[in-house]
Design a protein around this nucleic acid. Structure first.
Lengths: 221, 221
DNA sequence: ACCTGAACACCGTTCAAGT
DNA sequence: ACCTGAACACCGTTCAAGT
């Protein structure tokens, strides 16, 4: 591959890919430089430092989602709109599971920008849309708050479940060892299969339906 | 202060205090050693490494909460029990805002251990309690899942709101600058005060009431 | 204008040595 | 048994130098 001159976008995109592949902790100016075929110090021409690079990577993902995808389409009902946004956010979280914790952990730019919906421009658009769907000011703000906390809770849980090593590496990997550990916890043991069942997609949709239902009755009242 | 010999507990507790005060990123083996009046290398006698120390700090907080507080008292109704647990968890999150993201970000030890309720022993106790309150197996598991995702979403939002610099430091701190930024976002601007209102305590309680109500109707059906 | 090389201060961690 | 000192490989970042 012939190396063009580096741009800020190149660096930020490379950081996203690197974090997706190796995790944040592995992201090093020297290693990212090497991945780009350049000395670490060249990165400082385009980005002020490591911390800011990570912020920029988060911002890039957010901006791509909200500018390129979410502002193009607008369903005819607010229920459909919520589902549209939720599914897009879910897809982003599952496509970049190593980035998602960063998206929600970095302090937001303003007190009323609630993760993971961290784009002022987009939040404005969202609230404006809710008004068009007939929400009052109070209902719109409440819906925004309820929606963010639903997304946060459900998506982080899904993402963190991905981080669990599927087969916990034990030096003594006989079944007996595992069962012995669980033996002290009879209810967990009995419900183990139910607890381990991963219906995250359905649970996400159900939770969203519940939320929508709650907001609907709140609107009618 | 006369220095006794160091114990593992001393090291872990010091790590918690250090993170509370300075954040994880500032936690350094050398600095933590200095805080304990000891060389960095002495810590390795008690803890395998930095990563494991942070895990141990998280585990310590969880264990303290669940063993010392949450297993002592058991309200007579399941609704009261949910409130009791939620309030204890909320208090922990707000007492250790810099630790909370670590509690929910570290991969859980088992697929059915959902953050922030990361104690097997305690989850077993929780599920057993729900059974005693009359929950079926399915309802108990559903309640556990809904409860964790509610706690996660709401508490992380509260904690991340704490991280926002209350007065964003701008070189040009005139009001005009701030308003110019917001000028492009009329709905956010108009709803700014409503959005910024911090009713987190009430919202938390309301959200919990909603959750309880949802679980109750699910039980009756 | 953009990248490199050398350098600085600071990491986590190992290991032999002290007491 | 517990802590120290020196050392190693690796960081982020600065700065003068190259092209």
């Amino acid at each position: 591959m012939i190396r063009r001159r580096l741009s800020r976008t190149d660096v930020v995109q490379a950081a996203i890919t690197f974090i997706d592949d190796n995790g944040v902790q592995a992201l090093t100016m020297r290693r990212l430089g090497a991945a780009l075929g350049v000395e670490a110090m060249a990165l400082y021409r385009h980005v002020p430092g490591r911390e800011e690079l990570i912020s920029a990577a988060v911002g890039e993902l957010i901006d791509d989602l909200f500018n390129d995808d979410l502002m193009q389409e607008k369903p005819s009902s607010w229920e459909g709109y919520f589902q549209f946004v939720a599914n897009a956010m879910r897809k982003l979280a599952l496509t970049h599971p190593k980035m998602f914790p960063l998206m929600i952990t970095q302090p937001p730019d303003a007190p009323w920008l609630r993760p993971p919906l961290r784009s002022i421009r987009w939040v404005d658009y969202f609230l404006t849309s809710l008004k068009e769907y007939g929400f009052s000011d109070d209902r719109a703000v409440n819906a925004y708050k309820a929606f963010t906390s639903f997304l946060l809770g459900d998506l982080l849980l899904q993402v963190s479940a991905l981080g669990v090593s599927p087969v916990p590496i034990a030096e003594n990997s006989s079944d007996e060892q595992d069962n012995e550990n669980l033996g002290d916890y009879p209810t967990v043991q009995r419900l183990q299969s139910k607890l381990a069942e991963n219906h995250s997609a359905r649970e996400f949709d159900d939770g969203l339906d519940d939320l929508i239902e709650r907001l609907r009755t709140a609107m009618d009242s």
